[in-house]
């Protein structure tokens, strides 16, 4: 990723001038109040136990939509789903039908980030794959590249309603969005909304935590139980693991 600011593109002189202007201000920035920072030593990951996920439960979907103001336009092929339940039927009828949630896999080698021309899609220090919606130009190449269909384009204008969560922005049309692992909640020490809902209302199928912390529940479980990821053959190293697939 190479980044030039606009002034560098339109003329370096402006940057110099801005630097001179801003210099006195920088010292003022030194004493912030309450401050949180993503830690490079963390690797957020999710483990979903399919045996505990029942077909008729949709606690995670509802919680996600509510928390993140994910818009529904009433057009099935344009509605946005950060997380959805996928029903699997064995073609040979040997295994029972299962239903499991699929969301952005927050890959270690995310193809969406590789193809993004502006770096709007990026990997945060703690391994979360995000879209900087201020920088997205809406080219949709990431949607072409993602093998999990995790991304959606905002096809229509969205509006804030009284039920909207005021802590999360609504959407600007023409940009691409997807699951953020509820990054705004993580930074405030909370679990993602889907995980919280699954463990309170749902069947307790979702486990979320830091894979890099050997004492975390998820690190222990990933070490001890057999789990797998979707399309491991692509070599993307997803961080959403499934148990009992």
């Amino acid at each position: 990723m190479t980044t030039l600011d606009r002034r560098a593109v339109l003329g370096l002189g402006g940057t110099l001038a801005a630097g001179v202007l801003l210099a006195p201000g920088v010292s003022l920035l030194a004493a912030p109040g309450e401050r949180t920072e993503a830690s490079a030593s963390r690797r957020w990951a999710m483990l979903i136990d399919i045996n505990r996920c029942t077909p008729d439960c949709s606690a995670c979907l509802t919680a996600c939509r509510k928390e993140n103001n994910v818009p529904l336009f009433g057009e099935p092929d344009r509605d946005i789903h950060w997380i959805r339940k996928v029903e699997l039927r064995d073609k040979d009828q040997r295994r029972p039908t299962v239903s499991l949630p699929v969301l952005c896999n927050h890959c270690e080698h995310p193809p969406c980030v590789h193809v993004c021309p502006t770096g709007a899609s990026f990997v945060r220090k703690d391994g979360i794959v995000l879209v900087d919606e201020h920088r997205c130009i809406g080219c949709r190449y990431c949607m072409i590249a993602c093998p999990y269909k995790a991304r959606s384009l905002v096809y229509h204008e969205t509006r804030r309603s009284p039920e909207s969560n005021p802590n999360v922005p609504i959407r600007s049309k023409g940009v691409v969005e997807k699951c953020t692992f509820c990054v705004h909640r993580l930074d405030n020490g909370l679990q993602p909304a889907c995980v919280e809902a699954c463990n309170s209302v749902g069947g307790g199928a979702m486990l979320f935590g830091d894979l890099n912390d050997p004492h975390s529940e998820i690190a222990k479980r990933v070490r001890t139980v057999t789990s797998q990821t979707i399309r491991a053959d692509l070599g993307l190293k997803p961080r959403v693991h499934y148990q009992g697939l």
């Binding site: 401050r35 949180t36 945060r124 990054v183």
Partner: peptide
């Protein structure tokens, strides 16, 4: 200072929050 710089201030904080995960509540 704010009158002159609030836009850069907010933009800088926005990029820090979104891209680096640095959130300063104030």
């Amino acid at each position: 200072w704010m009158r002159r710089n609030h836009m850069d201030f907010l933009k800088h904080n926005r990029d820090m929050a979104v891209r680096e995960g640095v959130r300063v509540k104030d």
